[in-house]
Design a protein around this nucleic acid. Sequence first.
RNA 1: GGGUAGGUAGUCAAGUGGCCAACGACAACAGACUGUAAAUCUGUCCUCUUCGGAGUUCGAUGGUUCGAAUCCAUCCCUGCCCA
Length: 430
Amino acid sequence: MDIQAMNLIEELSWRGMIQDIMPGTEAQLKKEMTTGYIGFDPTADSLHIGSLVPILLLVHLQKAGHKPIALVGGATGMVGDPSGKSEERNLLSEDILNHNLACVKRQLEKYLDFSPSRPNAAEMANNYDWFRQISFLDFIRDVGKHITVNYMSSKDSVRKRLDGENGMSFTEFTYQLVQGYDFYWLYTNKNCKLQMGGSDQWGNITTGTELIRRKAGGEAFAFTCPLVTKADGGKFGKTEKGNIWLDPVKTSPYLFYQFWLNAKDADAEKWIKLFTFLPKDTIADLLRQQSEHPEARPLQKTLAHEVTLFVHGEEGYHKAIADTEKFFSNQSAPADSLSEQDLESIDGVARFDYPAAKIARGIDIVTFLAETGIFSSKGEARKLVEGGGVSVNRKKVETVKLAVDNSLLLHGKYILVQKGKKNYYLVKTT
RNA sequence: GGGUAGGUAGUCAAGUGGCCAACGACAACAGACUGUAAAUCUGUCCUCUUCGGAGUUCGAUGGUUCGAAUCCAUCCCUGCCCA
């Protein structure tokens, strides 16, 4: 691919993917095939959609003809990044860390092209590989000597903690040096001249470029992307059910699709640029459609389509669509219009087993909801039923006195419970 | 080490002997209205409940008291100032 063909920085700018950029970065990217990296923390056994933007940065980088390195933080994960954290983090045990590392690595491998035939084939790196050989004394002599505490303390992530209530351990204080050394190592060993990341990483990244300048006399570049926000100020990627993960086992493709489909209009406008590869005029067209027919939600649909396809592939996308159709396309249709096969194969629905005998005898709705496990207690179940938030087989439960018995069974063995409009639970009798 | 201000539910933040499961705000969940959107209004929001209540909370542990988030003692943690 021709590096000149597309100006990466221009492309990323209009998508709203650039927050801070170091002077000269654009010129460097135009000059030659440049190696760039992003680090991923192994704080969990799957990445979630918060990591999607950094992943996309690497994909864009590779598409523009440059060489991406995805780094997993085996070493940095042991220290803990203070950026954006108001208090000291708990350290992960080594077992968990290694497990997470392997999982995260496997995921990252899905999104980049590692085929060795490409001159700009992606690479994977683990900073533990170089850190395990460095002794503490070596590190403070060879690395620490180049950076002053004054410099380190002026970083936002550090200053906030020094000014804040909770203080900061020496361990977390050193984090930026550890990450800075990564960049230095990649610079000297892999000719990597670019680091990218979320804007919260800016401080850590500049420590790296500083180290490269002072220790190697070299010049390195960087840019960051804005942290993804929601219009209502909430945390991006969190729902009442928790994080939206990239791992289909942890978050089914159906729920993943639903997350994007449920985006607010204001968010969808930003996200369509951020999370898809659609060209400028296609997006402009979608925005126009959205304003003409907001009820059709072309933005959300396209967004959900593109992102699900990217993360879960054709199969995952089709499954997500099929399940969405079943639940939402004719909501007024009675529940028994769903075939047994539909009920069995639907994704993203929590499933519960319940003894058939108890239902045959008849049981009150509150006890039923609590004993199946849909609600954690009778009190909680009762409150939501009283508030009108529970439906059984798509009919709203009007009273807590409702008895659940055989007459409610679909296909002789299922009961479909809804909590609110969008949360489905399937109870199967056994 | 000395001085000083603090530690209250997911977060912020009132409360300084009984009317306290604890004002208020935000977040969250649900309902109405909608477009599986936003805004608005309403309900829920420590745990359990036979809906009458019951149980466990206000950094920790002991104590005073009929009664403590509130008073006393000791300890732990944090900020700030001084050494």
